[in-house]
Simulated scan of single mutants.
Amino acid sequence: MTAPDLASDLHTAIADVLDRHGYGLLSRMILVAEIVDEDGALGLLLGSSPTDLPVWDRVGMLRYALHDTEADVIASRITQDEE
């Protein structure tokens, strides 16, 4: 299987799941997954769809996800401290 085939299959599968749960259309995505091979070694799979997504778009999406996650963590810590 080639990288474009994998990206297309993942895009189709994730778009279907998002649609079934009412999240709308999937326009582009970044996928980060930890993979364990047959020998038990860990690897990181990093992909994007479309496969020709420019590197600056990929970096921007990853940074946005990181900042959004950090904001959730900070908000939960503030809320827990007040209780």
Rank of each mutant, 00 (worst) to 15 (best):
I78V: 13
D9E: 08
D57I: 13
P54G: 07
H11P: 00
H21P: 00
L62G: 08
H67C: 08
L10G: 00
E70I: 08
S76W: 08
S27E: 14
L62Q: 04
I74F: 07
E34P: 00
T12V: 03
E83S: 09
D68R: 12
Y23H: 13
R77A: 12
I14M: 05
A15T: 00
P54H: 15
M29G: 00
R20Y: 06
V32R: 14
V55Y: 15
D52M: 05
D68I: 00
R58H: 06
I35N: 14
V55L: 15
G22W: 04
R20A: 12
L62A: 14
G47I: 06
S76N: 05
T69Q: 07
T51G: 15
E82G: 09
L62S: 10
A71G: 05
L66E: 12
P50V: 11
T79I: 06
L10T: 02
A71V: 02
L42N: 13
M61P: 02
D5I: 09
D68V: 03
V32E: 15
D52A: 15
G24L: 02
S8N: 09
G40I: 08
D9K: 05
H21E: 10
D9Y: 07
L66C: 05
S8T: 04
D57P: 03
M61G: 05
E83C: 08
L31K: 02
L46S: 15
S8W: 02
T12D: 08
I30V: 15
D9A: 10
D81H: 13
S27T: 09
S8C: 01
S48T: 11
I14S: 01
D19I: 04
D57Y: 07
P50C: 12
Q80V: 11
E34D: 15
S76Y: 07
D72W: 06
V73W: 07
I78F: 06
L18P: 00
D5H: 12
L42H: 13
R63A: 08
L18R: 11
L44M: 15
S76P: 02
D16M: 05
W56V: 09
L6R: 04
Q80A: 14
G43L: 03
M1K: 10
Y23D: 01
L26G: 01
D57S: 12
V17Q: 09
S49C: 13
D19V: 05
D37C: 09
M1G: 11
G40M: 10
T2V: 02
D39I: 00
D5P: 01
T51D: 01
A3G: 03
